[in-house]
């Protein structure tokens, strides 16, 4: 196993870069960070739409969220991989396809986290803000969102773990990321699948487990602050995020 790592660590880490496109673990992390960064603003809008005072906006965003949640991520990838080029008229590469699919998928999940974070705040917070004369937007920006986003930080972090795991599906459309790199190494060596896939699984595990543990630490920290100050922050409702394995 160490021998394989010694011989192939560059491929595992950055793929064929700089001779070819960036790949390997670096590409996985890059795709995940891009995916999170781009889906966050969409999620914020979707999440606010889910609790909008306007019925039509609530209905449209609910349909979007439920449709995405009911569709396998692979289907979303295929839609953007095969159908998008037909719509926009020219082919697109695997990398932006995967990032695009991740943004669609994660926006829906993060939107639900934003929504439940907002709904978990005591009603008195928004009433107090509105009683001062702040309008809806001002109340959201100054009072509701800072608290809601802070409270849902641990859930968002676990969702980021899901996002990292989802990037592995880029393998199916041959995006140069970590799983793809391992499969390349595997087919080159032919006789060492146990070692190669153990390296792959172990690396993912270390990355994701570290993030999971930090999410738990943040959650404990917030829970402690809440205990010290139980009157003002109600604990998040038992909201089940459905993680991606």
């Amino acid at each position: 196993m160490l021998q394989i790592l010694r011989d192939n660590w560059v491929l595992f880490l950055i793929g064929q870069y700089p001779a070819g496109p960036l790949g390997g673990l670096a590409a996985t992390v890059l795709i995940a960070v891009l995916g999170l960064g781009l889906s966050f603003p969409c999620a914020l809008l979707l999440g606010l739409g889910r609790i909008s005072p306007f019925r039509s906006i609530r209905a449209v965003t609910a349909i979007i969220v439920h449709t995405v949640r009911g569709t396998p991520f692979l289907m979303v990838i295929f839609w953007s991989y095969f159908a998008l080029p037909i719509i926009i008229g020219h082919p697109i590469a695997g990398f932006p396809t995967l990032v695009g699919a991740l943004v669609i998928y994660e926006s829906a999940y993060l939107a639900e986290i934003v929504r439940s974070g907002i709904e978990a705040l005591p009603k008195g917070q928004i009433e107090a803000a509105r009683s001062l004369g702040l309008n809806y937007r001002q109340a959201m920006m100054s009072v509701v969102l800072p608290q809601a986003l802070y409270n849902s930080l641990p859930t968002m972090m676990s969702q980021f773990v899901s996002l990292i795991k989802e990037t592995s599906l880029g393998y199916v459309i041959s995006v140069n990321e970590f799983t793809f790199a391992a499969a390349q190494v595997n087919s080159r060596l032919l006789t060492k699948p146990v070692q190669v896939f153990s390296i792959l699984a172990l690396t993912y595990f270390l990355l994701c487990f570290a993030l999971t543990q930090s999410a738990r630490a943040v959650e404990r920290h917030i829970a402690r602050r809440r205990r010290e100050d139980p009157a003002v922050i109600r604990p998040l409702e038992s909201f089940v995020v459905e993680p991606a394995p």
């Binding site: 799983t179 595990f205 994701c208 999971t212």
Partner: peptide, 23 residues
């Protein structure tokens, strides 16, 4: 539980397909 929750399902599937039969 930790291992199965922190490794992508695809990687688990590939592991079962490529590596487990070897064992």
């Amino acid at each position: 539980v930790e291992v199965h929750q922190n490794v992508p399902l695809l990687v688990q599937v590939l592991f079962w397909y490529f590596a487990v039969p070897e064992l």
